[in-house]
Design a protein around this nucleic acid. Structure first.
Lengths: 213, 213
DNA sequence: AAGCCGTGGAGGTCAAGATCGGCGTGCAGA
DNA sequence: TCTGCACGCCGATCTTGACCTCCACGGCTT
């Protein structure tokens, strides 16, 4: 049914050093949070998934929120780094677009679904979460907008709007592509999106002879 | 502090006909859900906001979830209609893009923040909610993709990907524009976005003499 | 004036986050 | 090798908070 089958639930008896236990708990928590969301995920579920009793969880994390935030921080940083790296990987702007798209797709596809914590969190009303999620989008957009502003001379507000748009396309389409079962190969999807972002929708070939104004 | 001040809490004594009471409850529920999200919103809050006691609420709606879904359905339909209308408003594709962007911005700006129920719901793990939210994005994308497919001859998968992208930009940027306090006028933002979608990022004027390949 | 129907406040239930005392295991030292 | 200690772990429980119903009251109809 809605069973979680990612990693085997450990036989409840192994003793682990503190650091290793903490990492294992983070892994178990990620699986449960990703699969069920924050609210539906119970501390009992996470403990059971890790093959551990609940008090152990509370010996490593003060509470459910802090556990969630620890995971969130971890994965927020990853995306911003990937986008920065993509932008710095070349000076050809078209390739920059392509590399950035690629970064979003890779981020969404990998990491055991961790992107859900950032893009589909159900705890955005919690200020601490909202702040982190907003900061990711903002940091990515600022990195992109710097390039735009430098190359086009647009003011900060305008270039930020475009940058948010480019980041938004990547994020939304990557999630759609994944959730619809990857109907077309990833590279082809990236190519298509890059064309859209680079040349616009007007840049696609016309079927009929209809004038586009 | 975080007070809700949209409509005055009615003096607790007015008798209303059933239909009017229901609408009033929907209004109160919308304010609370928008301001606090689904989970943080208590039925007590909604009842108090409407100037009514809790049993009345349960005489109109079976439970919290159904109340939420009623609101959601209401506003989902509104966006899809607006997008369809925008696409049908002209046959000039560039104007179609502009009209669609405009529809998203108007949707996000108006309706007392109801767009949050659709775009920022904290109940996406509930299948009934997920289904409706996904369907909105899908319906909008299909409407857009039909135009794309017809005019470019692209296959269904490809045109859907582009359509999801165009809808995604609109939605993400409109929300950013609103949440950042509308730093530039709405019409200008729409123009900028339309340019991005129509001609691509390469269509913006160069600042320096640097070649764009 | 008498009855009825909708309203109001107080309470039950239950799930889930958070916690307390006890147990077993492995190591240090004599 | 035997004893004591420290550490990690567990079963069982407490408590909070939110959704959801039961006994009194007041205005409208005939």
């Amino acid at each position: 049914m809605t069973a979680i089958e990612q990693t085997e639930a450990r036989p409840r008896g192994t003793r682990l050093p503190r650091r290793a236990r903490r990492n294992q708990l983070l892994g178990a928590a990620q699986e449960v949070f990703v699969a069920q969301g924050y609210h539906a995920a119970a501390m009992d579920d996470i403990a059971e998934r890790a093959g551990v009793s609940k008090p152990v969880l509370y010996q490593h994390f003060p509470g459910k929120l802090e556990l969630y935030l620890a995971l969130l921080d971890q994965h927020c940083e990853a995306l911003v780094q990937a986008v920065r790296a993509a932008l710095a990987s070349t000076t050809d702007n078209k390739k920059r677009v392509e590399a950035t798209m690629h970064a979003y797709f890779a981020y969404v596809e990998d990491e055991g679904g961790a992107f859900r914590l950032v893009f589909e969190s159900d705890l955005t009303n919690e200020p601490a979460v909202r702040e982190r999620v907003d900061k990711v989008a903002l940091d990515c957009a600022e990195a992109i907008s710097e390039v735009i502003a430098e190359d086009t001379g647009l003011a900060k507000e305008q270039s930020m709007l475009l940058a948010v748009g480019l980041g938004g396309v990547s994020q939304v389409v990557a999630r759609y592509w994944l959730s619809s079962g990857s109907p077309i190969p990833r590279d082809q999807a990236v190519q298509l999106l890059t064309s859209l972002a680079w040349r616009g929708i007007a840049g696609f070939p016309l079927h009929g002879a209809e004038g586009q104004h």
